[in-house]
Design a protein around this nucleic acid. Sequence first.
DNA 1: TTGTAGGCGTTATCAA
DNA 2: TTGATAACGCCTACAA
Lengths: 271, 271
Amino acid sequence: MAKKAIRTRGAGRGPKPPSIYDVARAARVSVFTVSAVINNSGRVSATLGRRVEAAIRKLSYRPNLLARSLAKQQTHTLGMVVTDIANPFFPAIVRAAEDAAQKAGYSMLLCNSDDKEDKEGLYLELLLSKRIDGIILNKTPGQLSAFRYRAGLALLPRRPDAVLVTNYLMTVGFKSAADEIGLRCPEDFALVSFDDYPWLGCFRPRLTTIELPKYELGSTAVRLLLERIQGKRSRAITVNLPPQLRVRESCGFMLHSRKESQTVMVRSGVL
Amino acid sequence: MAKKAIRTRGAGRGPKPPSIYDVARAARVSVFTVSAVINNSGRVSATLGRRVEAAIRKLSYRPNLLARSLAKQQTHTLGMVVTDIANPFFPAIVRAAEDAAQKAGYSMLLCNSDDKEDKEGLYLELLLSKRIDGIILNKTPGQLSAFRYRAGLALLPRRPDAVLVTNYLMTVGFKSAADEIGLRCPEDFALVSFDDYPWLGCFRPRLTTIELPKYELGSTAVRLLLERIQGKRSRAITVNLPPQLRVRESCGFMLHSRKESQTVMVRSGVL
DNA sequence: TTGTAGGCGTTATCAA
DNA sequence: TTGATAACGCCTACAA
């Protein structure tokens, strides 16, 4: 895998990229004409149009989006703040969001708040200063999460019959702790986790999971945000996405009658 | 988990944020003075300094980074192009890169090339247009990868003794295929994979892996890039990061003598 | 120490 | 259809 670092333009060094004025001069027209051609707004005669396009190619001109953003007062950029992209919960969501943004002509600035409120705050400030058009914020729960990351482990010595863990990383932590104590899953305790991943099906015990529609979550978030940015919707709305139950051996259904396993139900938004 | 979409400023609606001129007026000073205070460059008398800071707070002024970037010809932004953030190989790298960037005062624009050369090209163009200061590019291998995503599966009917797969997602695919055929690991074949993850230790078969130092990879990439951007280094250099071998049961060492398992060696850059 | 004015690269208004 | 020219919001010589 080739990983390449590209310095786009040394600090002050290297030739400055051509501006719209350079193109205008080369094509012997005004900047208005060039601008009209680039955005194909306004009618430009075929002759001038060709001259401009030739000049653009010749100089390999590339519009400066910074300047455009400053003039138009919109950056076509979204900020996305997640607690930690390295947490397997987020990549699919971020991916979906970036996809949706890209399709609509928006770029995505990624920030990791690390579950720290001060860091989150600084990032929000920064994004606002960058005049991005909108923010997708995965709000940090703050103090709360610290109590959640160890609560499960305290449960272990009590030999629970069944455990439902609400995210994958905590499930891994819990399972590891159970391994150390010598508790087996599903023989000694049943385990159900939130979040499904492609690899869960081929390692034992195969986890029973409640999968949140991560991709849909990310793309819906961006869709709603863009609707508001573009004025198509004025008030915030809430969208409920139905989760999915994926039954595998970790919940112990193999140990019981088949009939029982059929009674499991999941309803949208209720979990 | 609260996910919140924030519209930073409706298209054309809402009050315009105050500019440096508004602050200057409110503080009865010139824009120079305000600028000097913000960047604490140049000496400003204590009196005016206080007046400016009061005005900044009163108006809750926030410098427009777009305008600053345009004036200073640098955006303090890096572009990062990966094939797919949802591939578990990348999140740690991206996280590391973002960390390093943030510490140095840079933001990170994330792009998914999806392993498509045209999409990669479009993103590079876009990043250049945005006048970002540098790019971290995970070059797509193009056509090559298509042959790699199925080659392993063709191998299966030949009953290999051992398989080394060079990334995790392919390992999952291979293992699933083996499951279907009824080949067991490590009894029927030994398996070693690239990439280690926290959950590999608590599901069976526990994978033997060669872990690339992903976090270090991402942060080093940004470090080297910033060194070049800031003119501290003029030529590209190559850094070798040592991988790590993590022996678990999938390679079958439990089935053989302990002595054999001790002879495994990994050298930096050789794999 | 502080202010003035021009430049950064666009878009947009208003004449021509 | 085109062309000047003023924003956009900041930095920064150069003057005062």
